[in-house]
Structure formats: C-alpha cells, structure tokens
Nucleic acid binder design. Structure first.
Lengths: 238, 238
DNA sequence: TAGTGGTCTAGACCACCGA
DNA sequence: CGGTGGTCTAGACCACTAG
C-alpha cells in the first residue's frame, strides 16, 4: 500500500474488526496517529473520514473519535446480508456455491443496450446462475456484460471470481455501482429454482456496475428468495 | 453557508441539476474553481469529492471532472423512488399526503428498546401513518421515537415535517441512517391499507436513524406497495 | 510538454467540549 | 483551560493523459 491514508484506514479498520477496539472505545486522536504513522493531521483525517462514511466510527469536536456498533457495518451476515457494495470490496460475491445454468453470447436488446451504453444488437455475455448456501438456492442471477470491455470470460472464470479476473487479470479498476431494489411476485422460474410457493415473493436487485472511467461494464438482475436475503445500507449525511 | 467547500459543493450540484452542465460535460478544474471562489485547491477537491460520492461526477487524472448520467442520482423519481438518505436531505419525506392512523405513547418492547438503545418499558411514541400519492396509498409507516430525545411531538408536527422540527426547532443534527430491506408476503393490514391482493407482496424497509452523536432517535418499519416503490443506492469504491 | 487530479505537508485559526 | 476535531492555506511532488 503506497498511499498513506489508505494504510491508516486499513490498519484501523482491521483493529476495529478484530475487536482490538470495542464499541464505544476512543481511538487515537489525529496528532497521536500522525506521529505513529509519520504523517500530518490531514492525512489521518482523510483515513478517519472513510471510516465515518462506512459506519465504523463517529467523531465529535472536543471529544474524539469513537467506535460504532458493529451492527452498522454488517459484514457478518445473519442469514445472507448484502452490504452496499460489499459484493465488490470483500464478501458475498463468489461466496457459497454457484450453479451455472446458461453461458452464451447474445445480441443486446434495447434494455441491455441502454444500461450498458452500447448499441442494440452488440454482442453481450448472457450469464444465468443460481447461488446456493448450504445447498439451498437463494438467488437467481442474470448478468449481461459486453465482451468488448471484458474479453476472455470462460466457464472456469465464472466458477471462480469474476471480479478478481476483471481487476487483476485484465487490470481494470471497478469504480461504482447503481443498485435499485423492489419486491415482486415470484414467477414460475423463481418458484422452481428457489423452491418458492406461488404466494411467496422475491426481492429483485437491478445493478449497473461501472469501471472507474464511468463506463458501465455489467448489467445484472438478481431475484432473491424473500426469506433468505436482506439488503443493508448505511449512509452518512454530508 | 459559512463553510467554503459546502458552498462550492452546493453551487456545482445546483448547476448540474439545473442542466447548466450536461451529461459528459467537463466542469472547471480545481485551480480555476479555486480562483473563482477565492480558495485553495484542497478546498475545491473536498467539494468535488462529495459530488463523486453522490454520483454527480467522476474524475480522472490527466483529464478532468465530468458530469455523470442523471439516472445515477435519482432525485426525480419515475414512480416513487427513494434514494439512499434522500428522506433526509431533500425529497420524499413529507412528500404527498399522509394519513395518521395512530399516535400514542407506549412502553418499549425488547425489539424497540434494542434498536433505540433504551431500556425495555421506557416510553416511546408509537406513530402509524399511511402515505398517499395522488390519493393512492403506497406505504404504511410504523415509527418509534423516544420522547426523552425528541420531546414535544404533536399531531400537527407529524402532519408537517418531523425532520424540520427535529433539526430546526429542537436544534438537533441528524447524522446517519442504517436501512435494511427485504421482500415479504402482504398481511391483512397491508392488503387493506395498500389495496393489495392476497398474492401481492410488500417491500419492507427497516430503518434506524441516528443523531450526529451516534444516538439512535428513530426506529421505523415501512411496508411498501410492491409496484409503487423502488429503492435506489449509488455507491463508490473507496 | 502542459494540464489535470491524487497525495501530502506544516502550519494556522476556529468551534466545541470537559474539567 | 487544554485537547479534540473542522476547516483552510500555499505550497510541493507525483501519476496520468492528451496533443
């Protein structure tokens, strides 16, 4: 880690997650931390501000920086709990088993083209997977990606980590994601694949993921078993 | 606005939202903007970084800062679209009509006490509302708040903006919120109040909101008509 | 090469808090 | 009062991109 503020951020995050600092604990002030890492106050502040945004700590003038309740950053999920962007950083993506139902190239339709900002009939990967946890299916994941941006995807890569492939093998940097979620009645496929009764609903999450140059590279629609998935977000006022 | 970076942030956000800068447009670089506002580069950077986090712009070394697609920050909602924390900043909260079904004081049960970090049997407001849009109900909102923290709530305040009362009348600052969402089968009350059929589901959002000293002041559970509500989140990698 | 953003410094002044 | 974080400066050097 060549960047100082990220080193400080990672260090403190690890200490909080490992339990070295407990809920309510005061963590070192900026000047102390600056001496410890050999850097200025501003650099420590930048690191701490990320921790604030992610719900690890809160800070008060005149008092200090305190560790927040662990329930705010739900890395450890009770059932399956997806945290905002966790799919990227560390966690759920690739967790548990996955069953590949379909992997082919198709022509983009209007909707896909619009989300991926490509032309209608441009080629896209069409990937359909069911993810399992303890042999129970909990989500059907439909993914579209343009091979022009993400070349060389194989079944093998899909069974491993697609995001590792994109970042490490292709050397691309993932920047942001837009997720929209709603409830829906289950359809026949949902019922079959997720072991749902007709009356049981699904939680739908539509995601568009972007590279750090704002080019969309993935459009996906996930349909989750209503009782096996919860989606959490923590957000701080600016 | 006494703080410079917030002034720059507000100014640029308004210019983007008003359409003065279109999608893909290059906005002024840090040095130019610094001269315009009479401040240093770091101050401009701080303002622009908030815009990055909120999905208004993206920035690239060597190129500049560009306006992102408006669909990423869905302030203008197609149906009713709630953006992460929009309820606070500007928007949905208090939008449309609301029907107050119940407003009383009760003793906190285990669950409420846990979320609000108070003791079991401490008093809490018990508020039940149905929100309408164009005379159609779209959400049942159950809210619990401790009067010890938020005193003086009346029916009148509930019909206006509760958040304005908390921030402006009580002088408290709202800091953050934790939301968890999932799909659920509709129950009898849902069906009656939201005009749902038995087979139609709801989107549940559980929220704990915090003051800026990390004290929880509101615990709420909203049950939304599945077809009239979508919840969106935009998030940037750190 | 010129211009951009990314990081970082070593200060400064202020607001806020607790003792 | 001393210690904390919040803001801000006027520089600096570097990485990256375009022409």
């Amino acid at each position: 880690m060549k960047v100082k503020y990220k080193a400080i951020y990672e260090d403190m995050r690890n200490r909080i997650e490992s339990g070295e600092y407990q809920v309510g604990d005061l963590i070192p002030d900026e000047i102390t931390m600056g001496r410890r890492f050999g850097c200025s106050r501003m650099t420590v502040k930048k690191a701490y501000d990320i921790l604030v945004n992610e719900g690890y700590i809160y800070r008060r003038q005149g008092q200090g920086s305190f560790v927040l309740s662990h329930s705010l950053k739900n890395e450890k999920k009770i059932e399956i709990q997806e945290r905002d962007l966790t799919g990227f950083s560390r966690g759920t993506q690739g967790e548990g088993q996955a069953k590949l139902l379909r992997f082919q190239l198709i022509f983009a339709n209007e909707e896909i083209a619009q989300h991926l900002k490509i032309r209608v009939n441009d080629p896209v990967y069409d990937i359909l997977r069911v993810r399992l946890l303890k042999d129970r299916p909990y989500v059907i994941e439909q993914t579209y990606m343009p091979p022009a941006l993400i070349p060389g995807v194989t079944e093998e890569i899909l069974n491993g980590s697609l995001y590792t492939y994109i970042e490490e093998t292709l050397g691309l940097r993932i920047g942001a994601a837009q997720k929209t979620t709603w409830a829906d009645k289950s359809n026949e496929i949902d019922q079959q694949e997720l072991w749902l009764k007709e009356t049981e609903p699904v939680l739908v999450i539509e995601q568009v993921a972007f590279l750090d140059n704002a080019v969309p590279f993935e459009y996906s629609i996930s349909r989750h078993h209503y009782d096996l998935f919860r989606f959490s977000v923590y957000s701080v006022r600016h």
